[in-house]
């Protein structure tokens, strides 16, 4: 049994989770944890269940067995919006912005406590407007932080791919969540953008955020991660520092096995 103190230190604890789709064992006993202030990379060959694990943690997929704890609280199979509102923000493997809304709106909708109830429209209008102004200012600040301030009135759909990736990251920051999850933050972007994104992640770590990400770009992983969790066939086969993982025979076998088939 873990002591209460260490539970709090661990932002995320995934305990022996299972998810089978028919005959496919997408997640098969994965277990790992993320400590406060850490950057953890989740890697593994294609089909290892990385994205499924993400979806299980964030409540988009109901798990069959196991437990997931966030900041000591059991969040197993809770609704996605409930989990999100506990202070966990994520991006998706494909870009999921609100394409026909402006960059600024995309930011503002990510923020908390925005008086979004219908009753506020009529009964606390003044407060709502004030809050909006505050949110706008904060959104602009964050856009400056990621370098998108010039695009505030542009529709998200008109941004370049790299800019959309940046906006997604900026949105997760706007949620004020302490724990951020990125599904392939570096996929498909050019070198300049890659540097920008890794710089951003480092800055976020400096600010005390905890980060879990899935990525195929090994250089990026080795550079960024404090800890690497390797998944294969839905189960973790190795956990360690990037250095330890590099020389791990099981990991090499898993990747080579993946290439063969």
């Amino acid at each position: 049994m873990l002591s209460r103190k260490s539970e709090v230190l661990q932002v995320l604890r995934v305990v022996d989770i299972y998810k089978h789709f028919g005959g496919i064992k997408a997640v098969n006993g994965a277990e790992f944890s993320v400590k406060k202030g850490e950057i953890v990379a989740l890697i593994g060959p294609n089909g290892a269940g990385k994205t499924t694990v993400f979806n299980c943690i964030t409540g988009f997929i109901q798990i069959d067995k196991g437990r997931i704890f966030f900041e000591g609280e059991d969040i197993t199979n809770k609704r996605p919006e409930k989990i999100a509102s506990m202070g966990l923000a994520r991006t998706f493997q494909i870009i999921r912005l609100f394409p026909k809304m402006t960059v600024l709106e995309n930011m503002m909708i990510a923020m908390r406590d925005q008086y979004e109830g219908l009753h506020h429209v009529f009964f606390s209008r003044k407060k709502m407007m004030e809050k909006q102004k505050e949110a706008e200012e904060k959104a602009i600040e964050l856009l400056e932080f990621v370098g998108l301030e010039a695009k505030e009135d542009e529709l998200a759909m008109n941004l370049s791919y790299g800019q959309q990736k940046l906006l997604e990251i900026a949105k997760t920051i706007a949620t004020d969540a302490e724990f951020l999850m990125f599904d392939e933050p570096a996929a498909g972007v050019n070198l300049t953008m890659l540097k920008k994104i890794s710089g951003l992640l480092k800055k976020l770590k400096e600010q005390g955020k905890t980060i879990l990400f899935v990525e195929h770009n090994m250089e990026f992983v080795m550079n960024m991660a404090d800890k690497v969790v390797v998944l294969d066939h839905g189960d973790e086969i190795a956990i360690g520092t990037p250095k330890q993982i590099k020389g791990n025979k099981k990991v090499i076998d898993a990747y080579l096995g993946g290439v063969q088939c």
């Binding site: 988009f60 999100a84 923000a89 999921r96 912005l97 609100f98 394409p99 026909k100």
Partner: peptide, 11 residues
């Protein structure tokens, strides 16, 4: 625009 993204923001 995107129900899932909206949900992931806690709506």
């Amino acid at each position: 625009e995107d129900e899932i993204a909206s949900q992931s923001l806690g709506k």
